[in-house]
Design a protein around this nucleic acid. Structure first.
Lengths: 236, 236
DNA sequence: CTCACCCTAAAGGTATGATTAATTGGCCGT
DNA sequence: ACGGCCAATTAATCATACCTTTAGGGTGAG
């Protein structure tokens, strides 16, 4: 004891965030080994707290813990890159551009497939949400309100992934949302969004309502490809 | 040695596996709350062990822990479905068919895209590994050694995903491997694998070596579609 | 009768002592 | 002189005692 905590609840989360950030940023490179006693003093926390954080990092594949050796930072190939916490740490770090490219290519594969499935499984409510989101995008795209545009864009993609009826695809909604947010937040968007993008969104919504999987898939592919292209070649 | 060592020396992993299985199987349904003291006696383990397991489950989104109330099982929408451990638990549970369908649809989107990227980025070593894996599949497919066939199949897909040059796609290798293992381990494979599957694998390897993204993508799509179809209509 | 405040105990969170396993280095046998 | 085996050391792992928070009921004033 002795040290007064400035944060009442969340010793564990504090240490976990700190460690995760240090590791993903490269301050603790793969192969480097840490001793838990050293971490106790570094973060002024007890072994329980450190150990629980280490256990979580281990479950993410970030580190491996071996007796008599210490906690070793694992090679990047062992990392569980789909963990939302890990994605957040990396989006705040230096390899943000590379990560956005990787996520764009992932979307290229996933979202058209989800659109095709949604053409089969979407409920009337979901169709309504999709068309509503497109209208919001059109309105705020013309007025230049990028924040409202972003919200509608996120709603559109989240609804579409949920409408696929596939829980794994639906689970990717948070990842896609992070990508969209990252694009707007780092000035990778023009002052007025590409009119073609809005048109493609409308095409997807229409195709899904018309139960046309092929058209939905193709239009969605156009959306994602344009988005990835725009991310790689910023307008500014 | 087919499956990864699950019997690692450690109380922690045992408790984690037990709890994860119970939760995913529905024995502890969402909304149900557990007390740590109760779990201590149930698993004859100490508080630290239980707590560390709980912390890992919490990081997977399976449970939330609140003071004075206990550990509450989270709704399924909060679960981090891409965690390999969670996938393994669910593949051993009752909703295995539905999960295999979801994963098949995911592969349908992801693996063809990875094949197309691999046609651009694959190194000569990776091309060699791919063709080698195909040869192993042909040999063991004819001899009926399903275990060796499985290893070669996993190696093929893992190498292809790595060759895409995209870390997110490469990270899905464990997921795909779990699907393939699950298929063989639960007698969803015929005694001799589909000859067409082996031919398509060979086509993918050839197309990648020839730097033909479109052909690679199409052949890979054939592979995944056949695999999903086969898992939905078991031969037995 | 209702509401607000406080007070208690129940349960998770934290800190530290005890245990076990694995690496290192020295010693003995060949 | 070289290689394998044993023990001493070290750091993770396990166990337990203590602290902090908060749900939920009880009490008193309005």
């Amino acid at each position: 004891m002795g040290t007064k905590d400035q944060t009442n609840t969340g010793q564990h989360d504090r240490v976990l965030d700190e460690l995760g950030t240090r590791i993903t940023s490269g301050e603790f490179p793969p192969g480097h080994t840490l001793r838990i006693e050293q971490l106790e003093t570094r973060f002024t926390a007890s072994r329980s707290v450190i150990r629980e954080a280490i256990r979580v990092l281990e479950s993410m594949g970030l580190v491996t813990s071996r007796r008599r050796v210490g906690v070793t930072v694992a090679p990047r190939t062992a990392w569980n890159l789909f963990d939302p916490r890990l994605i957040r740490w990396r989006l705040n770090g230096t390899d943000r551009p590379a990560l956005l490219l990787s996520l764009g290519q992932l979307r290229h594969g996933v979202e058209p497939a989800a659109a095709a499935l949604a053409a089969h499984h979407a409920t009337p409510e979901q169709c309504g949400t999709l068309t509503g989101a497109v209208m919001q995008m059109a309105v705020h795209g013309r007025s230049g309100d990028l924040h409202a545009y972003l919200d509608a864009d996120i709603l559109f993609h989240r609804t579409l992934l949920a409408a696929s009826g596939n829980e794994m695809l639906a689970a990717l909604a948070d990842v896609v949302a992070e990508v969209l947010k990252g694009r707007t937040g780092h000035d990778l968007m023009p002052a007025h969004p590409e009119p073609a993008a809005i048109r493609w969104h409308a095409e997807v919504a229409q195709a899904i309502q018309a139960r046309d999987p092929h058209a939905a898939e193709r239009a969605m592919r156009d959306i994602v490809d344009e988005a990835t292209r725009a991310t790689q070649h910023p307008p500014a």
